[in-house]
């Protein structure tokens, strides 16, 4: 059954406290009419997988600025897959060198939005990908 509103979990895995981007995106998604849960900083991949499932999220948005994305993003997608929930759309952002994007996509992160991305682009990407799920 299709839900009225897209539910998004915005989460910060790892130890970095740079939450400006995550909070701006979370707020923009909320303003765009989505239901947004913001996890706060210092979440482990396990915590994120668990709350994505509990909160019945359609989308998980991950943000890392410390350089730990290659280690931590895949742990989230893998965790969702192990729970049989790889239907949940996972996207990411932060300070991520271009060379890493392919590896992250192969690990199941659908898209990476780097510095300078317009929040409108993220909104329309999510609408396109998550509608009909």
């Amino acid at each position: 059954m299709a839900k009225d509103r897209i539910r998004v979990l915005v989460a910060k895995p790892g130890l970095d406290g740079h939450d400006r981007g995550a909070k701006v995106v979370a707020r923009a998604l909320r303003d765009a009419g989505m239901e947004v849960i913001y996890s706060g900083i210092r979440q482990t991949p396990e915590m994120i997988v668990q709350s994505a499932i509990q909160e019945d999220a359609d989308v998980v948005g991950l943000s890392i600025l410390s350089g730990a994305h290659l280690e931590l993003f895949p742990l989230v997608t893998e965790g969702l897959r192990n729970q049989g929930r790889d239907d949940i759309l996972v996207i990411g952002g932060g300070i991520i060198p271009g060379d890493d994007i392919q590896a992250l996509q192969q690990a199941g992160v659908k898209a990476i939005f780097g510095p300078g991305t317009s929040t409108e682009d993220i909104v329309s990407f999510i609408r396109q990908e998550a509608s009909g799920r």
């Binding site: 790892g14 130890l15 970095d16 482990t44 350089g67 730990a68 290659l70 280690e71 931590l72």
Partner: peptide
């Protein structure tokens, strides 16, 4: 909790 963060 240090996974992926050491030396980054």
């Amino acid at each position: 909790l240090a996974i992926g963060e050491v030396g980054k």
